[in-house]
């Protein structure tokens, strides 16, 4: 078994599972505001994954951009249009 490429594989598998769950949830939830918030959680988990893959600069950028600014932009748009989605 060759798990040891990463620092802690249990952590890795946990984060990957949660990232995939967040991605599915963000696309299935009907309320667009919750969709934006789940997108923020997705970005933050992705940032953890990248820290663990030793890409600290990328993780820093993602924490500031993905979890911060783009969530606010999505929220701003979601509040300007009809909040409920059909699918």
């Amino acid at each position: 078994m060759n798990w040891d490429a990463s620092l802690l594989w249990q952590f890795d598998v946990l984060i990957i599972t949660m990232v995939i769950l967040c991605a599915v949830a963000a696309l299935t939830v009907r309320d667009l505001v919750s969709c934006a918030i789940i997108g923020g959680a997705y970005s933050f988990l992705m940032c953890l994954l990248w820290t663990e893959m030793l890409a600290v600069d990328v993780a820093f950028t993602e924490a500031a951009v993905g979890a911060g600014v783009s969530t606010v932009l999505l929220l701003g748009t979601a509040l300007h249009i009809k909040r409920k989605s059909k699918d």
């Binding site: 963000a26 667009l32 969709c35 997705y42 993905g66 999505l74 249009i81 989605s85 059909k86 699918d87």
Partner: peptide, 17 residues
């Protein structure tokens, strides 16, 4: 497959990441 355009945009950023 998604019908809502905001969902499409979020799917695009998932693809990108």
């Amino acid at each position: 497959a998604k019908n809502n355009l905001l969902k499409k945009v979020i799917a695009m950023s998932i693809f990108q990441s």
